[in-house]
């Protein structure tokens, strides 16, 4: 058996600056294809500096192209985002439980993304588009701080132009050039005209945002077990033994990062669990 602690070297094939502090890397995984499910994450190791958990943001149908979207916010993500094509990262994974895209077949599906939360949801969205006939309405509701903070703006535009999807974007603050909705992303959920009996919600973003999204979905009558959230915690081992990501009775790395609201909703009411 492979040692779960030891990373595999992979070469950066391309690098794309998404926003001022966020970068998308494509790694060459052709030697060791990474077959992942939407919502899973990997551990990325920058040699000699440290390791960090990052959601896969690429297309699950392309296991030889491992794509991550990384924001430079910490002691490891900052040096990682400085890497260039040809540089090498260590990769472990994929790890964790995926978005319930299989369970959602036959349903209307709403993805609600806030900020960098778009990255872990992108593979789920690509999966919905690739298997469009298996789903009812598919909606992508995106919230960002400002228009400049939007991830994948070109793709958002292309997806929005399709006739079989509904894509809405709102920002908290806008300059004069913005003509779209302004306000929090939950408002988009209020306006979506959902049929609670046949809708599944998957949301990723800051915890406060996900809490409000879940509250709005519940208010509309969507059952808690059809609302999924993706959690961020300090993850070091990714295999449920280092303890850092414990959250209630769960290890976020192993039992999550995607959870049903029926399982975790009560935890959002207690600070510091």
């Amino acid at each position: 058996m492979n040692d779960p602690w030891v990373p595999v070297p992979m070469t950066i094939r391309s690098r794309r600056q998404e926003t001022s502090d966020t970068v998308t890397f494509e790694l060459d995984a052709s030697a060791a294809p990474v077959r992942f499910r939407p919502g899973q994450f990997t551990m990325l190791w920058r040699y000699g500096l440290g390791e960090v958990a990052i959601s896969v943001s690429g297309d699950p149908r392309e296991p030889e192209r491992l794509v991550h979207t990384i924001r430079a916010v910490g002691a490891v993500t900052r040096p990682i985002t400085q890497l260039r094509p040809g540089d090498v990262l260590g990769v472990r994974g994929p790890f964790g439980r995926p978005w319930p895209v299989d369970e959602a077949e036959g349903s209307d599906v709403v993805l609600v993304a806030g900020g960098l939360g778009m990255a872990p949801l992108r593979p789920a969205w690509l999966h919905l588009l690739a298997n469009r006939e298996r789903y009812g309405r598919v909606l992508l509701l995106v919230g960002a701080r400002t228009p400049a903070d939007l991830l994948f703006p070109d793709q958002l535009g292309a997806w929005r132009a399709r006739f079989d999807t509904e894509v809405q974007v709102t920002v908290d603050r806008a300059d004069a050039g913005w003509r779209g909705p302004i306000g929090v992303v939950t408002r988009l959920l209020e306006r979506a005209g959902l049929d609670p009996a046949r809708t599944r919600v998957m949301t990723c973003g800051p915890e406060v945002m996900m809490k409000f999204v879940a509250r709005e979905a519940l208010r509309q009558g969507i059952p808690a077990d059809r609302i999924a959230v993706s959690m961020e915690r300090n993850m070091q081992c990714a295999i449920g033994v280092c303890g850092h990501c414990q959250w209630g009775a769960d290890f976020v790395c192993r039992d999550g990062p995607v959870f049903g609201w029926d399982r975790v909703g009560a935890r959002f009411a207690v600070a510091g669990v």
Binding site: G115, R145, D172, G183, V184, T186, G205, P206, V208, F212
Partner: peptide, 20 residues
């Protein structure tokens, strides 16, 4: 009340990148 709740959420400035 809807406006009030959303204003509170907005006041959190949830997408602010901390420590960056």
């Amino acid at each position: 009340t809807g406006r009030l709740e959303r204003s509170r959420l907005q006041a959190h400035d949830v997408f602010r990148v901390r420590g960056a």
